[in-house]
């Protein structure tokens, strides 16, 4: 869920600095090559995956990982776009399936040369440029203490009077996810469904956390988030009553990816890092720090992950997403603003 557009940074990089100093004292700093990775803030926050991944990877590669964090996934793309060939980036980490096509069209990335054969077959991943490092399904979360009979389909939710909070598709990844979801289920009928949903929508927030925190404070019956959200409450708070509703129509997935910058001159090291990202070691860290699902089948995970709902996947290819997004957005803003 980490590419949410409003996630703000709270990085305290003291940990990195301390580690850096430790290594500097053991080895000659100048001999090490540096790998610059553009990513989003929460990935490198003290409780995000960044610090642990850096620690382990630097021990393997005799290099120094340099995270440069921006606000969110789309900011990574925009920054690389603005900088063009002057970019410092070697790796772009944290784009998602909705951004893949734009990044490719803007020629910001280059193909990798690693083996992705051990990725989960269910992902059916065939891209030669982008490497997935986690994924998740969008889902509506509810409090099972309050809602005894949750909606079992998107249609049921839309035609109920349950109060809903979701995110703005113009500014947030889950919001875009819901938009894709609506189009996948309703196609040309989506506009009228948006209007029905609007009648019992409490608010449309700018980003994920505004929506989720309002929900936690009792602001609504359902909130749009990810199927993995309940795992956080179980593992970090030992609360089991937050649940994701499983919908019959299927769920839309978000796949988070990394790719080598077109202008990188450290291809070998960048490839090494991409390979590390999908290693069992990294894949057991990312889910419990980024709160998403692993992209390999044999990652070691806490039991809470076994209890998550396992939905059917629906949705569109990155090409369709890139092409249709503007039209879908216009449809949504006309329908939902009435």
């Amino acid at each position: 869920m980490k590419t949410d557009l409003t996630r703000k940074n709270l990085t305290c990089r003291k940990v990195f600095i301390a580690i850096g100093l430790l290594f500097a004292s053991l080895q000659v700093q100048a001999a090490k090559s540096e790998l610059n990775i553009y990513t989003y803030d929460s990935f490198v926050s003290e409780w995000g995956p960044g610090p642990q991944l850096k620690n382990i990877f630097e021990a393997q590669c005799d290099c120094s990982l340099n995270f440069i964090a921006v606000e969110d996934g789309v900011s990574i793309l925009n920054r690389a776009r603005i900088e063009g060939k002057k970019t410092k980036a070697d790796v772009l980490l944290g784009l998602d399936n909705a951004l893949i096509e734009t990044a490719r069209q803007q020629a910001l990335v280059q193909p990798h040369s690693i083996d992705v054969g051990h990725l989960s077959p269910s992902l059916n991943w065939q891209d030669d440029t982008f490497v997935p490092f986690d994924y998740g399904y969008f889902a509506f979360i509810y409090d099972s203490n309050k809602i005894k009979k949750p909606a079992t389909s998107l249609a049921q939710l839309i035609h109920s009077d349950a109060q809903v909070i979701y995110q703005d598709p113009r500014t947030s990844t889950p919001g875009q996810g819901l938009m894709t979801w609506m189009k996948a289920v309703y196609g040309d009928q989506a506009a009228s469904q948006w209007q029905t949903l609007a009648s019992h929508t409490v608010t449309v927030t700018k980003g994920w956390w505004e929506a989720y925190s309002m929900f936690l404070e009792g602001g609504s019956d359902y909130v749009l988030s990810y199927t993995t959200s309940p795992a956080y409450h179980v593992i970090a708070e030992e609360k089991t009553h937050y649940k994701a509703a499983l919908f019959d129509e299927g769920h839309v997935a978000q796949v988070e990816v990394a790719a080598i910058s077109r202008y990188s001159d450290k291809k070998e090291l960048a490839n090494q890092f991409l390979a590390f990202l999908i290693s069992p070691e990294a894949q057991s860290i990312i889910p419990v720090t980024n709160w998403m699902l692993p992209v390999i089948d044999n990652a070691e995970l806490p039991a809470a992950f076994d209890q998550l709902i396992e939905p059917k996947t629906i949705g569109f290819s990155p090409e369709v997403l890139a092409e249709k997004r503007s039209a879908w957005l216009r449809e949504w803003r006309q329908a939902a603003s009435r």
Partner: peptide, 22 residues
């Protein structure tokens, strides 16, 4: 949110960060 440096996180930014991580 545009020019900030994560080495010098300010209080409001920290609040967003906390809230953004449940």
């Amino acid at each position: 949110s545009i020019f900030g440096d994560s080495h010098y996180t300010t209080l409001p930014w920290l609040i967003y960060g906390y809230a953004g991580s449940y």
